[in-house]
Design a protein around this nucleic acid. Sequence first.
DNA 1: TAGATACTTGACTATTTTAGTCAGGTTTAT
DNA 2: ATAAACCTGACTAAAATAGTCAAGTATCTA
Lengths: 141, 141
Amino acid sequence: MKLTSKGRYAVMALVDMARFDNINPVSLRDISLRQGISLDYLEQIFSKLRKKEIVQSVRGTQGGYVLNKKAREIKLTNIFDAVDEKVKTVQCKKESKKGCNGKATKCLTHNLWDELENHINNFFDQKSLEDLVKDNSERRI
Amino acid sequence: MKLTSKGRYAVMALVDMARFDNINPVSLRDISLRQGISLDYLEQIFSKLRKKEIVQSVRGTQGGYVLNKKAREIKLTNIFDAVDEKVKTVQCKKESKKGCNGKATKCLTHNLWDELENHINNFFDQKSLEDLVKDNSERRI
DNA sequence: TAGATACTTGACTATTTTAGTCAGGTTTAT
DNA sequence: ATAAACCTGACTAAAATAGTCAAGTATCTA
């Protein structure tokens, strides 16, 4: 089990943005340089974040992106959801007719993965962007 | 983020085994048929489980595998560890000298992934094979 | 109004991981 | 002896990942 870079980059970029006043737009170019993430890749990611209304875009010179909500209101769940970072632990869900393993019943571990998903989602539901920014400023070197 | 089939199969197979008396060895062929998992793939998985002393093998006719400990003592952590199902949320750990993103400091989300890993591992540390067997017998249809 | 900055979109691709398969063993109960 | 079952290593098709590349459009500023 692992998190992909897309989700990680999305969070990194948003934390980077959230550190500022949120009045002046932050350009992807700056984020790219500061965080060492490919500009082209960031554009893909921000396109998704914009569609889910987590950020707003400002075009033109001096443009960039601005958070669309308070940092406290943006939970990790929202971010991961936006960039398709799913916590899918198992394929049990898809086939509604049959159970997992193609048999009539649920597979022996079905409930386990359900529980795990809840456990992880609880974590993500609670963490906000604000929490992460604070966490960083506290341990600033 | 997702769990791979290898970890899922390992747990399924062990729960399957744990339902029996643990005196007569259970053959992979039987597990394969009951759980719908490829026999060849099961063999790869059990090779790892054996190396980590989670199961013991009994060769020859009527052979198979037996749990090496009480079901209560086998935690999911042990299983995932055996089959290399890592909960690695991020590559921050590798380069000990430098931080993540190749810079001197830790990346903005480093602590987050640490916390998440702990959160997930807590879950796995607590769940034992016995818990899963009980869970299944309770909801048997 | 020219030019630069920055967003926007879609197609493409190399690499890695996953989820197996396959072929050939060895061991042991009957 | 022989069949059941473990054991091992090499191989591979398909999917996912982590990007790159190209060709735009919008808007600010000089």
